[in-house]
Design a protein around this nucleic acid. Structure first.
Length: 421
RNA sequence: GUGAGCGUAGUUCAAUGGUUAGAGCACUGGAUUGUGGUUCCAGUUGUUGGGGGUUCGAGUCCCCUCGCUCACCCCA
């Protein structure tokens, strides 16, 4: 260990093989499933004007108040690394007048997000999300489709033991009244609530419903429930969603205590959690945001979306099944400099035919080259030495069953094609 | 931002305050000439995170600092 070391920044990690294959698997599964529902990829920038985020996420949220990576650029503009994806997509939707295209417009994105937080299990300063957004459909059917898509995606990835929660947090018409009811309910018992909840009473009373402290859990028994205070529009929408979910056979718990952090959500919110994660147990979460496009200066446009937390999905995947990682088709072991030259030529030819070929180091013994071939889980080893150069026939060995034989150097491709078929 | 735990070889971990800080894994070579996985032998690897203090003597005790981990807060 040397005195000074370059290290990745706190909360930022290198993603390496073999993990990277899990990442690719998840990304591929998501793309495939999303495309079945007509969602198309877009790639907004990772950096935006700071106010893109402050306006949408909410001035008073922790994300905006203390978690954003905000800089001043050389033109004295305040810019920020995106802490989440929706704001950028909405900005893009409005800026590029995408509402002029036939509705609904459905997009997905994938990439890194940045929040300056203390890292812990399942939480990082640079973390990856895959998210989707559907614009221009106000009805509950699209909500059900989006939730169904999320479910299909997670199933395709292979996640088990996950729980779906849904809720409706109302709209600007009915939520204020509910919020007031809730504040009244807790007002009498502030002494019994934890310090955090006393603060929440003023900042965001809905969060008290989410508190883990025992006495707060006791206190909120009998508290008014959002779902009992929805206006007619929100109630109809929520009932519609629930009936569609039932129609699709998606088991989903209605959880009136589920609160979402971002200010822009209206009506439907949902969350997928897993018991097999740490305290940060949300695998994916999302909801409807019917006012956001309007707030960005676009036409009133209903919208709904969700984001999946890549690291958390990978964590679950890593600990569940065993995984097959890619391995070389052929390892060429070489003995002597002439054989090494021939091996290089053969490797080049085979790679041109689409085979993954690894070359042994002529400086190492055959035993060591064989060992390396085995460690790489190579399917075949080809051995080239003086004998093979003279005869024009190389030795092959199949590592899985130790079978071996000879093949003409001119028939290697056919040999491999025949073996793999 | 708050709290707790932990920093020893590339890695996983040992070492009652007492010689020259050890072992597994990994890596390289070998065990009848050119054959992997299991076995055996040999070799390579360290300012014990950094700094200060206590002590005849510190990997071990104390203080500071840096880093990692988990939890709170918040959130994917």
């Amino acid at each position: 260990m040397s005195f000074f070391q370059y290290k990745a920044l706190k909360g930022m990690q290198d993603i390496l093989p073999p993990d990277i294959y899990l990442w690719q698997k998840v990304e591929t599964a998501a793309r495939e499933v999303f495309s079945l529902y007509g969602f198309q990829e877009i790639r907004p920038p990772v950096v935006e004007s700071t106010n893109v985020f402050t306006r949408s996420i909410g001035e008073n949220t922790d994300i905006v108040e203390k978690e954003m990576y905000t800089f001043t650029d050389k033109g004295d503009r305040s810019i920020s690394l995106r802490p989440e994806g929706t704001a950028s997509v909405v900005r893009c939707y409005v800026e590029k007048n995408l509402h002029t295209l036939p509705s609904p417009q459905k997009f997905y994105y994938a990439g890194p997000m940045f929040r300056y937080e203390r890292p812990q299990s399942g939480r990082f300063r640079q973390f990856y999300q895959i998210g989707v957004e559907a614009f221009g459909d106000a009805g509950p059917r699209i909500d059900a489709e989006v939730i169904s898509m999320l479910r299909h995606c997670l199933l395709r990835i292979g996640l088990k033991d996950i729980t779906f929660n849904v809720n409706s947090i109302g709209c600007p018409e009915c939520r204020p009244a509910y919020r007031e009811k809730l504040t009244e309910f807790f007002a009498g018992g502030l002494d019994s609530l934890c310090p955090d909840c006393n603060r929440r009473q003023h900042t965001n009373p809905l969060r008290i419903l989410d508190c883990k402290v025992d006495r707060c859990v006791d206190m909120r028994k009998g508290a008014p429930r959002v779902t009992d205070y929805l206006c007619n529009g929100c109630r109809t929408h929520f009932n519609g969603l629930l009936s569609f979910l039932e129609l699709l056979g998606i088991s989903c718990t209605v959880n009136p205590d589920m609160v979402r952090g971002l200010d822009y959500y209206t009506r439907t919110t949902f969350e997928v959690t897993s018991e097999n994660l740490g305290a940060q147990n949300a695998v994916a979460a999302g909801g409807r945001y019917d006012r956001l496009v309007d707030e960005f200066g676009g036409p009133e446009t209903p919208a709904i979306g969700f984001a999946m937390g890549m690291e958390r999905i990978i964590e679950l995947l890593r600990n569940s099944a065993s995984h097959d990682f890619p391995a070389p088709d052929v390892f060429i072991a070489v003995i002597g400099d002439l054989a090494a030259r021939e091996g290089l030529v053969i490797a080049d030819r085979l790679r041109g035919k689409g085979f993954w070929v690894e070359l042994g180091d002529v400086g190492n013994s055959l035993k060591s080259q064989m060992r390396r071939a085995d460690r790489l889980s190579s399917k075949y080893v080809f051995i080239i030495g003086d004998d093979e150069l003279n005869s024009g026939r190389l030795k092959w060995k199949k590592l899985s069953d130790s079978s071996q034989g000879e093949v003409s150097m001119f028939e290697i491709t056919d040999f491999l094609l025949k073996q793999s078929s």
